[in-house]
């Protein structure tokens, strides 16, 4: 312990960090709570000295907003889909990485690259990969005779009696791959065109998001799990080997329990990150938060940003607190479950 007469020194050293925390973390949190319970708050007018009545109007406004259900569903859906998939894949990859000797370091670096790359930039790359660009007009008879096998859309007959139609012309690598296996290109993210009767489907959109979020979330999880694996005493495995334990049993009975603190950490932070999903969707679909900006993939954080843009500070604050409440509850559930399953 520091001598009590010397304590002011300790406080002095802590001061810079404390000031920054107070200004940029503590004050905004308190202010968010304050604004959320002021009715009809307008920032500029507030500076002018206007007073606002207390009330829960902001909260009722957020909850009764019909788009808010979409935000909630999207956020929950992405969480529930991506967290288990990414955790399982990360576990698999880290166990594999841990068991190879050569190239281990190189692969580790490669797997870690997404973590240091800009989310929006990766989003744009993914958008290109999943792209489907336009349609190609084909003469139906000619196309079929040359062995064309993709669905021909919008077939019409011209004045000469020839049949014409449109075939999806994909330039994205994913659709190219699908074509390689003879699968019809899927309109993943673009809403335009007349493919499959019009715009891309919600399922396709979510699928793209899941792939993207999982891929983006892997590096951090692999890093944590690999660190955990490397700190596991090798003698546990030697002991298991001496006793003739099968690989599968060793994995489930020894590796996973010994790794459980890291797994719990990765799952909890995964859920927290999932509930804050926003920039990844902007990266792929733009600020419209959906194909052709229809907002069908809007999330809670997206809703908060939109509210801020329209000067609705009250609803933004209320939505933030609702999101905080949801994350708090989910984390408490996580902690409760892990207290039963995690072996520290």
């Amino acid at each position: 312990m520091v001598d009590s007469k010397q304590q002011w020194k300790a406080w002095l050293y802590l001061l810079p960090a404390l000031i920054l925390l107070a200004v940029f973390t503590v004050y905004p949190i308190i202010n968010t709570v304050r604004i959320s319970i002021l009715e009809g708050y307008k920032p500029l007018a507030a500076i002018g000295g206007e007073r606002y009545p207390l009330g829960i109007g902001n909260f009722t406004k957020v909850i009764s907003y019909k788009g808010f259900t979409t935000c909630l569903t999207n956020t929950l859906l992405l969480c529930v889909l991506t967290v288990p998939i990414s955790c399982f894949l990360a576990l698999l990859v880290s166990v594999c990485l841990n068991s190879i000797n050569r190239l281990g370091k190189v692969l580790q670096t490669i797997y870690f690259l997404p973590y240091v790359t800009n989310t929006i930039a990766i989003g744009m790359v993914f958008a290109m990969m999943f792209n489907i660009v336009g349609l190609k007009q084909v003469n139906v008879a000619e196309y079929l005779s040359t062995g064309g096998q993709y669905t021909i859309y919008n077939i019409y007959t011209d004045v000469n009696g020839e049949k014409w139609g449109f075939v999806a012309q994909s330039w994205g690598i994913i659709n190219n791959l699908l074509q390689l296996f003879g699968i019809n290109p899927v309109n993943w993210i673009n809403s335009g065109g007349n493919i499959n009767g019009g715009s891309s489907t919600y399922v396709a959109n979510i699928a793209v998001m899941v792939v993207y979020i999982v891929w983006n979330a892997l590096p951090f999880k692999i890093l944590i799990l690999l660190g955990g694996l490397q700190s596991v005493n090798k003698q546990y495995y030697d002991a298991a080997k001496i006793d003739g334990t099968s690989r599968v049993r060793t994995f489930w009975r020894i590796t996973v329990p010994l790794l459980s603190p890291m797994l719990a950490y990765v799952i909890i932070t995964g859920f927290i990150g999932g509930f804050k999903e926003y920039s990844s969707i902007v990266g792929i679909f733009g600020e419209g938060m959906g194909p052709s900006g229809n907002g069908s993939l809007q999330t809670i954080v997206g809703y908060i940003y939109d509210a801020l843009k329209t000067d609705s500070y009250g609803t933004a604050s209320a939505a933030s607190l609702i999101l905080f409440g949801i994350i708090l509850i989910v984390t408490l559930i996580n902690l409760y479950v892990s207290s039963k399953k995690v072996h520290y």
Binding site: N233, Y236, D238, A239
Partner: peptide
């Protein structure tokens, strides 16, 4: 291989599985 030799090995730091009870540890083999 080690598992077919039927040896019992006690490690220097014992290598008891920390997440299992004494009973589970002993019955594991």
């Amino acid at each position: 291989p080690a598992e077919k030799r039927g040896v019992g090995l006690v490690f220097q730091n014992y290598a008891l599985y920390p997440h299992m009870t004494v009973k589970q540890n002993i019955m594991f083999p």
